[in-house]
C-alpha cells in the first residue's frame, strides 16, 4: 500500500505567458502551492515536445502536467492547437503503456488564474497519492 507520508513528484510545463505567470502570481499572493510540483517554464505550450513529457516519466515523475494559454489566446497564433493534438497522442500512448491516464494532464490556465493553478496541483497531488509512485520508478534499467 502507499505510504501515507509519501509525496509525489509532479512535473509541470508552464507557458511563460499564461500558466507560468499565473503560478507566479499565485506565489506573490502568498497562496499555498503544494511542494510536490516542479515547474519548467517554456515560451509556449507548443514548445513542449512530447519527448519532454516522456522523458519526465522516464526520469521518474509521478505525473506530468502540460499547461498553456486558453485556446485562441496563444501568443504564437495556433501553437496550442498543436499542443492539444500531441496531447491526444500522448494520452493514448500513456494508457496503452500501462500508466494510469490520470498521470498526464492538459490544462489551459491564463495569467490571471493563479488560484486555478494551485487547485490543479492540489487535485493532481491527491489523485497521484492514491495511485502511488509511478511504476517507472521501479523499472529502471538494470
Amino acid at each position: 500500500m502507499v505510504d501515507a507520508d509519501w509525496e509525489p513528484k509532479i512535473l509541470a510545463f508552464c507557458c511563460n505567458w499564461c500558466s507560468y505567470a499565473g503560478a507566479d502570481a499565485a506565489g506573490l499572493e502568498r497562496r499555498q502551492i503544494p511542494a510536490t510540483v516542479r515547474v519548467i517554464r517554456v515560451m509556449c505550450s507548443g514548445r513542449i515536445d512530447p519527448a519532454f513529457v516522456l522523458m519526465g516519466f522516464l526520469e521518474g515523475a509521478d505525473a506530468v502536467l502540460v499547461t498553456g494559454c486558453h485556446i485562441g489566446d496563444c501568443h504564437y497564433v495556433d501553437a496550442n492547437y498543436k499542443t492539444r493534438n500531441r496531447y491526444e497522442f500522448l494520452k493514448v500512448l500513456v494508457k496503452e503503456l500501462g500508466l494510469d491516464p490520470e498521470r498526464l494532464q492538459l490544462r489551459w490556465i491564463s495569467a490571471s488564474e493563479g488560484p486555478i493553478f494551485a487547485d490543479m496541483v492540489r487535485e493532481v497531488t491527491e489523485k497521484v497519492k492514491k495511485l502511488g509512485p509511478s511504476p517507472f520508478r521501479s523499472v529502471w534499467k538494470s
Binding site: A51, L54, M55, L58, L93, F136, K141
Partner: peptide, 19 residues
C-alpha cells in the same frame, strides 16, 4: 548512457507512428 526503463528512441518511434 541513460538508465531509462524504455529508451526514448523506442518510445518516440511508437509515438510518431501511432497515426
Amino acid at each position: 548512457q541513460d538508465a531509462y526503463a524504455i529508451s526514448l528512441y523506442n518510445l518516440l518511434r511508437i509515438l510518431h507512428l501511432m497515426d
